[in-house]
Amino acid sequence: MTAVAVSETEYVRRPLGGRLRISSAWLGAAPFLLYTGLFLFLPTVLVAVGAFSGPHGPTLANLAQLSRPYVVSAFLNSLVLSAVSASVGAVVGSVLAYAVATGSPDGILRRLVTAFCGVLSQFGGVTLAFAFIATIGTEGFIVIWLQQHGIRFYPNGVWLFSLTGLTLIYTYFEIPLMVIVFMPALDGIRPQWREATETLGGGTWHYWRHVAGPLLMPAFLGAWLLLFANAFSAYATAAALLDIGGVIVPLQISRALSSEVGLDQANFAAALALGMVVIVAIITLLYARLQRRSARWLPR
């Protein structure tokens, strides 16, 4: 009843009808709803509508274009790139997270690693592409250093500016992201689990295989999906690194969007974007289901 008392003081000055009372409280959320309507929902709707419209009204032609060989290969490239970088990132990242989680919770090392991971997982993009060009580009630090010692870094041609190079660079921001996402799960591990295993005569292997492993698995898979989605939608690094467009889906979108040919291409970009949304939506659904399973065991 105390909640009502507050609202009543507000309405004493406005003796209006019941319906208007409700709307005056709702009005407070109006600017937010208006803004997100214009800049979050309108763009999304424009993408969905654009994917199905052409110069002569509604059409499925844009979606049909998705079956072109170079589009299919871009989607496949994107999927492989995301799967490989997410897998490497998840495994290496969880190892690093474990090393950090077993240290002092308030230590300077943990705070440094967390801050560092925060920067690298967010700030990747263009900077990262240049960092790797400076390291293992043809004029890069390591390449030149090895050359001075008579070793060729690229015996079979430069692979930095290809999907291989892109995969390596993506792991650079996937590992920090994994540390951030997976750390809470590792912090949830209780020493009692290990003690219980040892009481029952189990060793380190048994502990990881039968206790900690299965308990952490849903969180691990959930984090993997997040990493996958992150790599799948990344654009900046590839745009800064690769001159040739269209190798992965985001680059296809950017090429279609910046082409001068006209509305047709804008609709094709919308179809590509819709394809990406569908894939990310499937991943998000899987992620939500896994989260529910791991939440049962790990305290938040």
Partner: peptide, 18 residues
């Protein structure tokens, strides 16, 4: 939380006409 599931590269396609 929706922008987490809609990549910026997708949103920008919708931003372009706006």
């Amino acid at each position: 939380l929706t922008p987490l599931t809609i990549p910026a590269i997708v949103l920008v396609v919708g931003f372009a006409p706006i």
